[in-house]
Design a binder for these strands. Sequence first.
DNA 1: TGTATTTTACTTGTCGACAAGAAATATGCC
DNA 2: GGCATATTTCTTGTCGACAAGTAAAATACA
Lengths: 235, 235
Amino acid sequence: MSASDTTATAERKRGSGVRMVYELLRDQILDLELPPGAIVDEIQLADRFGMSRTPIREALVRLAAEGLIDTLPNRSTMVSQIDFANLHTFFDALTLMYRVTTRLAAEHHQPADLDRIRRLQRAYEDAAQARDEIAMIATNRDFHYAIAEAGRNRYYLSLFGRLLDEGRRILRLYYYSSFEGELPGEYLREHEAIVQAIAARDIEAADRLARAHADQIVRQIGKAITRDRRQDIAI
Amino acid sequence: MSASDTTATAERKRGSGVRMVYELLRDQILDLELPPGAIVDEIQLADRFGMSRTPIREALVRLAAEGLIDTLPNRSTMVSQIDFANLHTFFDALTLMYRVTTRLAAEHHQPADLDRIRRLQRAYEDAAQARDEIAMIATNRDFHYAIAEAGRNRYYLSLFGRLLDEGRRILRLYYYSSFEGELPGEYLREHEAIVQAIAARDIEAADRLARAHADQIVRQIGKAITRDRRQDIAI
DNA sequence: TGTATTTTACTTGTCGACAAGAAATATGCC
DNA sequence: GGCATATTTCTTGTCGACAAGTAAAATACA
């Protein structure tokens, strides 16, 4: 689907094209609109965006540097596969980053940070109420990313950002389908508790809650994957 | 200095140019041969490597994605500054990654990993004996990176890699000058203890030693910076 | 002489075209 | 028909040239 989003030959500011292509492709990849293995054609993209291959290529180089696409030399470039074999390493890193960033947020947050976090928490709540899966995934990501920003450590922030992005793809596959139509009330309550711990500058509570939240997510995805596997065998 | 390394118009394999330029610039930046703030000129590089601007640009896009250079739109691109104001966030992340990767190495290493780690440990020892500062920094980095590889978590590995790279610049400024000609015997002993803990699969010991090692480094750099500052004031 | 404005010089951003490499297709040979 | 080889086709990698934008130099003016 995804109606031919031809922004085509509209007058564009010099230098804005690369960022535009980069962001669009990135979102399409993370929402699985471009599934793992999909081939990405430079000429096709150039036509679609009404620009030459040069800026397209620069966007692709960036995506490749972040591991979102793989380029086979002199051959096609494709959306990178999700590394299911090492999912546990992903969960391990994700859990640690949840904990560290939430701790730091409790320690270093400033008033404006809390406003922003609370606003995103409400956005997630709204998305959940509306049962809008893609919006839920995106706002959940933004909520936790905002917490990490309040922690003010750009190294953790960059790894956490990558993990949350990769998570968007995995969640799109497993997570929300595992709710089976129910609202994730548990998660809303956990988010609320996390925000309160941060506001109270209670570092140990923030750590404990972040860890519990991560464990909960890992458990639920694990459950969904197991069920998925069982169905595979049953067929 | 750095004698005009013109690999120039030698027949090159198609596609190898980008990687070559990328790696060379990266090393020059991390060794401070290209100091923070140095401007990077595309045409100049194109001349120097005997290729057109296109592959040069792709290498620069990658470097920019990793934060090693900053590009001002329509203006020059320069080697990124070292963020001294937030050095503590760097040390915080570095310490955590030392611990986590060393723990995981103790848990998951395989025989070939240990061989590699021991080989790099000896390389560091040799560099220290020869008082070759650049080689010391590089082999120290490789030693810890090899440990992280044995831990088999690509997310930690990528952050740790970035931290060690950034560390190469900082160490080049402060760390080894702080030895004042003495050999870093302490570090050799600590390295040895870490390797033994990994080999024994003693996770807690590995963690404790990695933490102590990180603390030691942080303390020494801190001392060097403080002394540096005092001199600034004295003048 | 000092300031505002135009001009110049230089760097980056984009383009269209061509060359090289790899897979798919066609051809020749048995 | 089956296999090895040549040809075609398609995509990526590289190039040289030009357009756009910025800073510095030169000019005009009070």
